[in-house]
């Protein structure tokens, strides 16, 4: 491009874009900064050690958030492990195995599924799934880890499906035609061509799904019972880090109890950051 004398609108235009970019950058840091700053009094000295105990007794000055960290794992991990194979199956079916006429519909459905409001799933499950689980388990109240896991799996699978579909479609068409012309069945194409080529994207989808499962608040808040107890029983209750934040808001701004909520926020932020780095490492985008 020929370098001409830059006119005012050039400066303004580029300046505006750069400012917006700076704002976005600053926002990301600001969220981290706010969490860190507000959690700070708790991260210093003795209170830091109480943070990583399993006793949450704010009235006695004990702010252990370990039960919530375990709760997050107990809900998010099984949900992701359940949702991943299902999403993989769906994505294979929608791209290669289904009758051609169905494929577009299935892809469209996956897209629409991402738009279903979380709170609607939660509402439906409170009145449908929870009593069912209570009667089937024969113990507990039905507000349980398993209820949250089932609904969460349903909630995060569309995200994974869309990533997997786009990964499968990124496999060059000519290669797929090669497989076809050599007489490979669609199943063989999927097994011998797509899976090996899309392994990284598949792990990426798994991790992104895990991130969504960790970050979801409402499902666990509405369905998991929120007892402050290290989870041991799938039919028993649990409290996740996210629902803990939602529940303890009702406290004094200055108190250590309130600070511990920010420690949960900080922990979640760091978890997501690590997951993001991993996903980026696995699926280096060409034009990002």
């Amino acid at each position: 491009m020929i370098k001409a004398r830059r006119r005012p609108h050039e400066w303004i235009g580029e300046g505006a874009a750069a400012t917006a970019a700076l704002i976005t950058f600053a926002l990301t840091l600001a969220i981290f900064g706010f969490m860190g700053w507000l959690a700070m009094p708790l991260l210093q000295g003795e209170t830091l050690t109480t943070l990583f105990t399993s006793v949450w007794r704010p009235d006695r000055g004990q702010f252990g958030i370990l039960p919530m960290a375990w709760g997050t794992l107990a809900v998010a991990l099984p949900a992701t492990l359940l949702a991943f194979p299902l999403s993989l199956g769906f994505a294979c079916f929608a791209t290669h195995l289904a009758p051609r006429r169905l494929r577009k519909t299935l892809k469209g459905l996956a897209g629409l599924m991402t738009g279903i409001p979380t709170v609607v799933y939660g509402f439906s499950a409170v009145f449908l799934l929870v009593p069912l689980i209570r009667e089937m388990a024969g113990r507990g109240s039905g507000f349980s880890i398993i209820a949250a896991v089932l609904v969460l799996a349903l909630l995060i699978s569309p995200t994974m499906i869309l990533i997997l579909i786009s990964a499968f479609e990124a496999v060059p068409q000519p290669w797929q035609r090669c497989f076809d012309s050599m007489g490979a069945t669609p199943e063989e194409t999927v097994w011998h061509l797509l899976f090996p080529l899309a392994t990284r994207s598949m792990v990426g989808a798994l991790l992104l799904g895990l991130g969504r499962a960790i970050g979801d608040t409402l499902i666990a808040l509405m369905l998991a019972g929120n007892a402050v107890l290290a989870p041991t029983d799938p039919f028993g209750p649990a409290r996740t880090l996210t629902s803990h934040i939602g529940l303890v808001m009702a406290a004094d701004v200055e108190s250590l109890e309130f600070r511990s909520v920010f420690a949960c926020g900080l922990l979640l932020y760091l978890l997501i950051f690590v997951l993001t780095l991993l996903v980026r490492y696995l699926t280096r985008r060409p034009a990002a």
């Binding site: 976005t24 950058f25 926002l27 990301t28 840091l29 600001a30 969220i31 706010f34 969490m35 992104l208 991130g211 969504r212 960790i214 970050g215 979801d216 608040t217 996210t242 934040i245 939602g246 909520v261 920010f262 926020g265 979640l268 932020y269 997501i272 950051f273 997951l275 993001t276 780095l277 996903v279 980026r280």
Partner: peptide, 17 residues
Amino acid sequence: LCIDTLAGVPSIVVGLF
């Protein structure tokens, strides 16, 4: 990287912010 991170931050954490 910031945008990818921001996209993943749980909405309750953004709410807390």
